[in-house]
Simulated scan of single mutants.
Amino acid sequence: MAIFRQLFDDATSTFTYLIADENTRSALLIDPVHEQYARDRAVLDALGLTLKYVLETHVHADHITGGGRLRHETAAQFVAGKGTGLSCADRLIGDGETLTMDSITLEAIATPGHTDGCTSYRWNDRLFTGDTILIDACGRTDFQQGSADRLYDSIQRLLSFPEETLIYPGHDYNGKRVSCVGQEKAINPYIAGLDKAAFVAKMHALNLPKPKRIDVAVPANSLCGGADVGRVPGETEAA
């Protein structure tokens, strides 16, 4: 049996996912947010869990990962996709490789396009897609090694899973929490009815504003978030 929680950061509309083995109480977090460190520690403590791994779907441009501080203060291992090239990570996981934590096994799926290092994770009937597929949307391709061509291919790869496969994205800005492959194939305006040429044209025409925190988030996340980024002076480990 497993424990699963979906957590949400209102400031950046970021989802963090908790998966744990119910028997051993070992846990992992996908895409924690630095400012939500206290919340994440409180959830782990309330459930009696020991954090073993922090997994990143990519080097984020909109928030600083909480993985650095969590690793520093819990001895969890920091895992990111091989394409990130992060020398600070404990493990760079490649396409098709698995991470096993007691009864929990996740498969890494390289899904570049939003960034070079984007990695989705499959756990049983669920895909954690980061910014590759969002609900009724997809990640941007206009910064940080973005490539609409590669993103299209990555999206198609994820859409090859059975239609009932659940999709848990890295963000949502409209109050939605979960989707599935069949739903995204049918109604996502960046997917339904678009071939690669039309998708690339649509992405190139978006003309979106620069992410507000990119100049802070990308350097910090290139160092796996560090251990003390943004910590309030005098704050204790258990805060």
Rank of each mutant, 00 (worst) to 15 (best):
R39L: 15
G68R: 00
I64T: 13
L86D: 14
G66D: 00
D62F: 11
H72D: 13
D90Q: 11
A61C: 03
L44W: 02
G67I: 07
L44M: 04
H72E: 10
A76C: 06
D95W: 00
G66P: 04
R71N: 04
G67R: 00
D90V: 10
L92G: 10
A80P: 01
C88Q: 05
L51W: 04
R91H: 07
A76Y: 09
K82Y: 13
A76D: 01
I64Y: 03
E56K: 03
I93A: 02
L51Y: 00
L47E: 15
T65E: 04
T50P: 07
Q77R: 15
A38V: 08
G94S: 15
H60M: 08
S87W: 12
T74F: 14
T65N: 03
G68M: 00
G67F: 02
L92Y: 03
L55D: 00
T84R: 02
G67A: 04
A38D: 15
G83L: 03
C88P: 15
L70A: 06
K52S: 13
D90Y: 08
G68A: 01
A61Y: 11
L55N: 00
K82A: 15
V54S: 01
L70M: 02
A42F: 06
D90L: 10
L51E: 06
H60W: 11
E56A: 09
L92V: 04
T74P: 09
A46R: 12
A61I: 06
G81A: 07
H60Y: 10
D90K: 12
G66C: 05
S87L: 14
I64H: 04
A61N: 11
L86S: 12
C88A: 05
G48P: 02
H72S: 15
T74C: 13
L51H: 06
R71L: 02
H58C: 03
R91W: 02
L70N: 02
R41H: 06
E56M: 07
F78R: 05
H58V: 01
L70C: 06
S87K: 14
A89M: 09
R69K: 13
Q77L: 13
D62G: 10
D95M: 09
R39T: 10
C88I: 09
G94E: 13
G68N: 00
A38N: 14
I93F: 01
H72R: 15
A38F: 05
G85K: 05
A46F: 05
E56R: 06
T57V: 03
H72Q: 15
R41I: 07
T57R: 04
E56V: 10
L49H: 07
T65D: 00
G94Y: 03
H58L: 03
R41N: 07
G48R: 09
A75G: 09
A38W: 07
E73M: 06
G83V: 07
G94C: 11
I64A: 09
A46E: 09
A61H: 04
L70R: 01
H60C: 07
C88V: 07
V59G: 06
G66I: 14
A75H: 15
G85V: 12
T57P: 00
L92Q: 14
L70H: 02
R39D: 14
A89Y: 03
G85P: 09
L92R: 15
L49E: 05
K52Y: 05
D40A: 08
G68D: 03
R41C: 13
H72C: 13
H72Y: 15
A42T: 00
T74I: 11
A75D: 13
